[in-house]
Amino acid sequence: MKRKIVVIVTLIILILVTYSFWVTFPKQHDKTLQGIYYQLGNEEEIYEVTMHIEGEIRRSLFGEKTFEGVLDIEDEELAVPKGERNVTIKFDGDGRGDIVYSGIRNGSPYTHGYGSIFVNHNFTEVTILKGSWNAKEGYMITAPAKTYFEALTISNELMGEFLKVPL
C-alpha cells in the first residue's frame, strides 16, 4: 500500500514538473505578416504594411505573458536606431502590452513609447494601437488584413477584454 502511494505521488510530481516546464519554456516566433495601417472611422485611407516579428514569448505558471524581441514595421519611421529596437513587452490581464523602447543616447537614458499591442496565442494575428490612441479616431496597424472591415474584426476579437464597446 505504501509503495502504491509513493508511486502515485511521484507520478503527480512528475506530471506537475513536466507541465510547468512545458508552460514556461520560451516559444520562438519568427513571422512576417501583411496587414494594413488605418485610422478608425476612415474606411477610405488604408495603407498596406509588412510587419516582422522575431523573438520569444515566455509565460509564467499563472498565465502572464512576456515578449522579448524585435517588432519591425517596414517603412515606419521610429526615433529609435535600427540596432536598438529590441523590446520587452509584458502583457496584462486584458491581453494588452505596451511597446516601449529604451536605450542610452549620448550618455543619457531614453524611452520611446510606440503604442499598445494585442496578439493571439501564436502571433499570427496582431493589432497595434499607435501613440495616444482613442477608440473614435485612433491610428492602428492590424495584420493579417487587407480591408478595413477585416482589420476591425481581428481587432475586436483580440481586444475583446480591453474594449467596453466594439470598434
Rank of each mutant, 00 (worst) to 15 (best):
E48V: 00
S102A: 04
T127G: 15
K27A: 07
K31F: 05
D98N: 15
E76T: 11
N156G: 10
L16I: 02
I8P: 15
F91H: 07
V9W: 04
M140E: 11
S108C: 00
I154Y: 04
H121P: 00
K82E: 13
N134G: 06
L14K: 05
G97Q: 03
R59H: 13
Y114P: 02
N134M: 03
E43N: 08
A79C: 08
A143D: 09
E45C: 01
W22V: 13
S108V: 00
H29P: 10
P26D: 08
D94W: 01
Y37Q: 05
P144N: 02
F91V: 02
G95F: 02
V9L: 13
D92Q: 01
R105K: 04
N106S: 06
L61K: 13
T10Y: 05
E77F: 10
T32M: 01
N42F: 01
G63C: 11
P109M: 02
L33F: 03
T10Q: 09
E77P: 04
A151G: 10
E56I: 03
E150C: 06
E161G: 00
F162M: 06
I128Y: 09
I99L: 09
G160I: 02
I73L: 14
R96L: 07
Y139Q: 04
K4E: 06
Y38A: 02
L129F: 08
I5V: 11
G115L: 03
I73K: 11
D92K: 01
E150Y: 07
M140K: 12
I13G: 05
W133Y: 11
S132C: 05
L33P: 02
I141E: 11
K164W: 09
E56V: 07
G95T: 08
I104D: 09
I15M: 05
G93Q: 01
L71K: 08
V23S: 11
G107L: 09
T10G: 11
V165H: 13
E64K: 14
T10K: 05
V17T: 14
E157Y: 08
H121G: 01
V165T: 14
V23E: 13
E45N: 04
H52Y: 06
V119K: 07
E43R: 09
Y101D: 03
L152V: 12
G93R: 00
E56G: 13
F62D: 15
G97N: 07
Y139V: 05
L152S: 11
G95R: 03
E84L: 02
E74D: 13
A143V: 10
S108R: 02
K146I: 07
Y37V: 04
S132G: 10
L16A: 10
E48C: 00
L71F: 14
V70W: 15
P109G: 06
R58C: 12
E43K: 12
E76K: 11
A79I: 04
E68M: 10
A135T: 07
T124C: 03
L40P: 06
I53A: 14
P81C: 03
S155Y: 10
T32K: 00
